[in-house]
Amino acid sequence: MERLGLEYFDELLSRSFFQHSSSDKSMFVMHDLMNDLAMSVAGDFFSRSDIGMKKEFRKEALEMIAICHLKKLKNLHGEISIWGLANVQNAMDACEANLSQKRLSKLELDWGSLFNLSQTETYYKEVLNELKPHNDTLKQLHIKSYRGIEFSNWVRDPSFLRLTVMYKLNN
């Protein structure tokens, strides 16, 4: 599989789909013209992987985009930020992200600056509970704008052996 992937990469490189990064010649980026074409075709919704290998989902209103589409990304690993969690309708939507099956080293969960009076302490705790990541790989956990009173049990679970950094930030 790796050899086949390298062959595909070499083919795309020979067709100018990729070009050397201006900041690091050992890295490659999508050619500017290809990037412009892709952005034009994608419209409001796109997925972008930059040099830091951060996954970014964008839409004008961030309505459960991170959550619903994460279930399709079966081999997702590394670092991920999920913004706009205040827009998640219920905990089962968060469950679909299936973060416990993804090998994440850094996870940022951001509820955003919107304040919804209909969201209760139970809502925040249930959504956070369903966003439990894989415990063998997580090193950093950042939780932003969480308006719950207490965290889900997995946050203090001692099975997260590699977890060395944890932040809780409020706006």
Rank of each mutant, 00 (worst) to 15 (best):
21 S>R: 06
22 S>E: 15
23 S>P: 04
24 D>V: 01
27 M>F: 04
27 M>S: 05
29 V>N: 05
29 V>L: 13
32 D>S: 15
32 D>W: 03
34 M>K: 12
35 N>F: 10
35 N>S: 11
38 A>P: 04
40 S>I: 00
41 V>R: 04
41 V>E: 07
41 V>N: 11
42 A>L: 11
43 G>K: 09
43 G>F: 10
43 G>A: 15
43 G>V: 14
45 F>L: 12
45 F>M: 07
46 F>L: 02
47 S>L: 15
51 I>Y: 00
51 I>N: 12
52 G>W: 04
53 M>I: 06
54 K>I: 05
56 E>G: 03
58 R>G: 02
59 K>L: 13
61 A>D: 11
61 A>M: 06
63 E>W: 14
63 E>G: 04
65 I>V: 13
67 I>P: 07
68 C>A: 14
69 H>T: 06
69 H>G: 08
70 L>S: 11
71 K>M: 15
71 K>C: 12
71 K>R: 15
71 K>D: 09
72 K>N: 12
72 K>P: 01
73 L>R: 09
73 L>Q: 04
73 L>S: 10
74 K>R: 08
74 K>D: 06
74 K>W: 09
76 L>K: 01
77 H>Y: 15
78 G>P: 12
78 G>M: 12
78 G>K: 12
78 G>E: 07
78 G>I: 08
79 E>M: 12
79 E>Q: 11
79 E>N: 14
80 I>W: 04
82 I>F: 06
83 W>G: 14
83 W>N: 14
84 G>K: 02
84 G>C: 11
88 V>A: 01
88 V>P: 11
89 Q>K: 10
91 A>R: 09
91 A>K: 15
93 D>Y: 08
94 A>C: 13
96 E>H: 03
96 E>T: 09
98 N>C: 11
99 L>V: 08
101 Q>S: 13
104 L>V: 07
105 S>E: 14
105 S>Y: 13
107 L>M: 05
107 L>C: 13
109 L>C: 12
109 L>G: 09
110 D>T: 12
113 S>M: 06
114 L>M: 11
115 F>G: 02
115 F>I: 11
118 S>T: 15
119 Q>T: 02
120 T>D: 10
120 T>P: 03
123 Y>R: 03
125 K>G: 01
126 E>W: 00
126 E>S: 13
127 V>P: 07
128 L>C: 00
129 N>S: 15
129 N>I: 05
130 E>H: 00
130 E>G: 05
130 E>I: 07
131 L>T: 10
132 K>A: 10
134 H>D: 15
135 N>C: 03
135 N>I: 08
135 N>R: 02
135 N>T: 06
136 D>V: 01
137 T>Q: 09
141 L>G: 03
141 L>F: 04
142 H>K: 14
146 Y>W: 05
146 Y>T: 00
146 Y>F: 15
146 Y>G: 00
147 R>P: 01
147 R>I: 08
151 F>L: 12
151 F>M: 07
153 N>I: 02
154 W>V: 02
156 R>L: 12
157 D>M: 02
157 D>F: 09
159 S>K: 03
159 S>A: 04
161 L>Q: 08
